[in-house]
């Protein structure tokens, strides 16, 4: 059997969002929706760490649909609009979706979003952008990452894989032991999110260890309390 999968080496991710923007462009996704996101694992807001300087820590974790082998979104769909292809890609058939929204909470990974309004595209690109093979997005249906099935069918890597400047993502048939993605999956420490869900996701991560392993030198430069009024007007 073919099982298309991804392995993301988090020790090479720089949080640049090229994967996510390439995805948005390729699939003509409207304002406010992202099929791929890059989580900052650290502080409260994007690009911030947790901790006290210089003992701080953060890493980046791109996240898309995990194309689970036992995808929980499929059985809850009343119109059979979500299907699993023979190669493992979990795909939404837009023309069958009635927008009931049952699949959204069924996904343990928050990978499905409702396109509530007609997609808003940037000026000059209102007729759509990205691949011609991608169906125009419409209001009232759910959407999510397709592993760029149209590119896979043409023998290409998904747009996120092609765009990543630091080559974080390995893509291919994880059931083929000779494949690069199978080798990457066998790397020490490889893990998946949501092992306990039983969904059997097809996206693995290699852990971000550099921040823990690295040596650090330096200390805070001292008090920087705000200046006192001292009679200044």
């Amino acid at each position: 059997m073919t099982r298309l999968a991804m392995v993301l080496d988090l020790d090479r991710c720089i949080g640049c969002w090229a994967c996510a923007v390439a995805c948005k462009q390729e699939n003509s996704i409207g304002e406010g929706l992202w099929w791929q996101k890059v989580d900052t694992v650290g502080g409260e807001t994007i690009d911030t760490s947790v901790g006290v300087f210089p003992d701080v820590r953060k890493y980046y974790q791109p996240r898309n649909c995990f194309h689970c082998a036992d995808a929980p979104c499929i059985p809850v769909c009343p119109t059979n609009a979500i299907v699993k292809r023979d190669d493992g890609i979990v795909e939404i058939k837009q023309e069958l979706c009635v927008g009931c929204g049952k699949c959204e909470p069924a996904c343990p990974f928050d990978a499905i979003e409702m396109n509530v309004v007609a997609p808003l595209l940037p000026p000059g690109l209102e007729k759509g952008h990205g691949a011609a093979e991608v169906q125009p997005r419409v209001a009232g249906v759910v959407e999510k990452c397709s592993f760029c099935s149209h590119r896979v069918d043409a023998g290409q890597d998904p747009a996120c894989v092609a765009a990543c400047p630091t080559q974080v993502i390995t893509f291919g048939d994880v059931d083929n032991p000779e494949s690069r993605v199978a080798a990457a999956r066998r790397s020490p420490g490889a893990f998946r999110l949501g092992e306990d869900t039983g969904a059997d996701p097809s996206v693995w991560f290699l852990p971000a260890t550099q921040g823990e392993l690295q040596r650090r030198s330096g200390k805070p430069s001292g008090s920087t309390a705000p200046r006192k009024p001292k009679g200044l007007s």
Binding site: D47, S49, P54, K58, Y59, G211, R215, S217, S221
Partner: peptide, 19 residues
């Protein structure tokens, strides 16, 4: 780098002198 940049987080050794 005085700041924990996205490059510093990937280093083997991060040294943070005073700016």
């Amino acid at each position: 780098d005085p700041r924990y940049s996205a490059t510093a987080m990937h280093a083997n050794w991060w040294i943070a002198p005073r700016p």
